Simulated scan of single mutants.
Amino acid sequence: MKKTNEIWTIGSILKWTGQYFGEKGVENPRLDAEVLLSHILGMERIQLYVHFEQPLQQHELAEFRAAVKKRATRIPVAYITGCKEFMGLNFTVAPEVLIPRPDTEILVEASLERLNNIGQPHILDIGTGSGAIIISLLARLPAACGAAVDISDKALAVAGGNAAKHQVGDRLTLHRGDVYQPVAGQTYHAILSNPPYIPDSDIAGLAPEVRQEPLVALAGGQDGLSFYRRLIRDADEFLKPGGFIALEVGIHQACPVASLADALPQLKPEAVIKDYGGVERVVILRKSQEG
């Protein structure tokens, strides 16, 4: 894209960018090119092919060049566009929050299934980040209310903006603090979390894109289970009788996480749910009705 006087069509620039990203080691070069261009042009990706021969205006080309330059340095696409789809909703994202991933939809879907039969469910989301988990649930459960906890003021600002965008802000209370500390004395029908679960020693080997996400949302301690120990140890105190805690886990972590409840008489494993790739991705523990 060096010749400023050259006419670039949607088709030609997609072809060039896909090749360029491939040379730079980008995992999904063509897809990323399409996502960036569709964002800049305000089109759905399918429309790019309907308008394949459409030339780009100079301002569009300049904006696309800037985006391509960022992506070539392995900045995640979602941080460049400032948005990411999750559960059919468009969430604002920023470098201060973890980018929502399809695997986390398994956590939301499993929780929704268990909350549908509760009249006015109270839900707690710990480590909320962009708010994708709790906001997706509140959007589908109009009688529900929720609380979201995060240690980062910047993350809470992003979550608050997303709550307002999806019109659930009046049913969501945001708290700054560490794990359960800000909600002492409260109880919930469900506690949800996608906590940091990558062992500290594995952080350096992550893809360049992932390493640009907040370290506090990734690093899970020496064995990756530090936050699960805290979440499960104190869950009984914050769950209503019959309530549940649903946790996203990393590869090979489901059994170790579920076993953390072995010493807790009021909390029993209910389900381990696999993601779309067959990986055990969500652990659900249920509090007894007598608790």
Rank of each mutant, 00 (worst) to 15 (best):
residue 105 E to F: 11
residue 94 A to H: 12
residue 93 V to M: 04
residue 120 Q to I: 11
residue 39 H to I: 01
residue 47 Q to S: 15
residue 81 T to K: 13
residue 121 P to E: 07
residue 119 G to T: 06
residue 118 I to E: 08
residue 88 G to Y: 03
residue 15 K to Y: 00
residue 43 M to S: 01
residue 26 V to K: 01
residue 117 N to L: 11
residue 25 G to Y: 13
residue 38 S to F: 00
residue 65 R to L: 14
residue 110 A to F: 00
residue 55 P to A: 11
residue 107 L to I: 15
residue 54 Q to E: 10
residue 82 G to P: 08
residue 83 C to E: 09
residue 12 S to K: 09
residue 98 L to T: 07
residue 120 Q to G: 10
residue 82 G to F: 06
residue 58 Q to I: 10
residue 96 E to H: 05
residue 110 A to Y: 00
residue 106 I to D: 05
residue 105 E to L: 11
residue 54 Q to H: 03
residue 77 V to W: 01
residue 59 H to W: 12
residue 24 K to G: 10
residue 106 I to V: 15
residue 51 H to C: 05
residue 74 R to G: 01
residue 27 E to V: 13
residue 68 V to G: 00
residue 28 N to V: 07
residue 63 E to R: 06
residue 70 K to I: 05
residue 14 L to W: 05
residue 72 A to W: 06
residue 52 F to Q: 07
residue 39 H to F: 06
residue 90 N to R: 14
residue 32 D to K: 08
residue 39 H to N: 10
residue 87 M to E: 15
residue 79 Y to V: 01
residue 53 E to N: 08
residue 37 L to Q: 03
residue 54 Q to P: 01
residue 30 R to D: 01
residue 40 I to P: 07
residue 50 V to A: 08
residue 20 Y to D: 15
residue 11 G to N: 07
residue 84 K to E: 13
residue 57 Q to L: 12
residue 91 F to C: 08
residue 111 S to L: 14
residue 47 Q to T: 11
residue 100 P to F: 06
residue 27 E to C: 07
residue 64 F to T: 07
residue 20 Y to S: 13
residue 92 T to S: 15
residue 16 W to R: 14
residue 113 E to Y: 05
residue 87 M to P: 04
residue 82 G to Y: 04
residue 114 R to L: 03
residue 50 V to F: 07
residue 30 R to Y: 10
residue 65 R to W: 11
residue 22 G to M: 04
residue 109 E to H: 00
residue 25 G to D: 07
residue 66 A to V: 02
residue 33 A to V: 12
residue 17 T to D: 00
residue 33 A to D: 04
residue 46 I to M: 14
residue 110 A to T: 07
residue 55 P to T: 03
residue 13 I to K: 04
residue 51 H to E: 12
residue 93 V to D: 02
residue 41 L to C: 09
residue 120 Q to S: 12
residue 46 I to T: 14
residue 103 D to S: 12
residue 71 R to V: 08
residue 105 E to N: 13
residue 101 R to Y: 02
residue 62 A to K: 15
residue 57 Q to I: 10
residue 60 E to P: 03
residue 15 K to V: 10
residue 118 I to T: 07
residue 53 E to Q: 06
residue 100 P to R: 14
residue 66 A to P: 00
residue 96 E to N: 02
residue 12 S to T: 12
residue 105 E to Q: 14
residue 83 C to V: 10
residue 27 E to L: 15
residue 93 V to H: 05
residue 29 P to S: 11
residue 36 L to Q: 05
residue 105 E to Y: 15
residue 32 D to H: 06
residue 61 L to D: 03
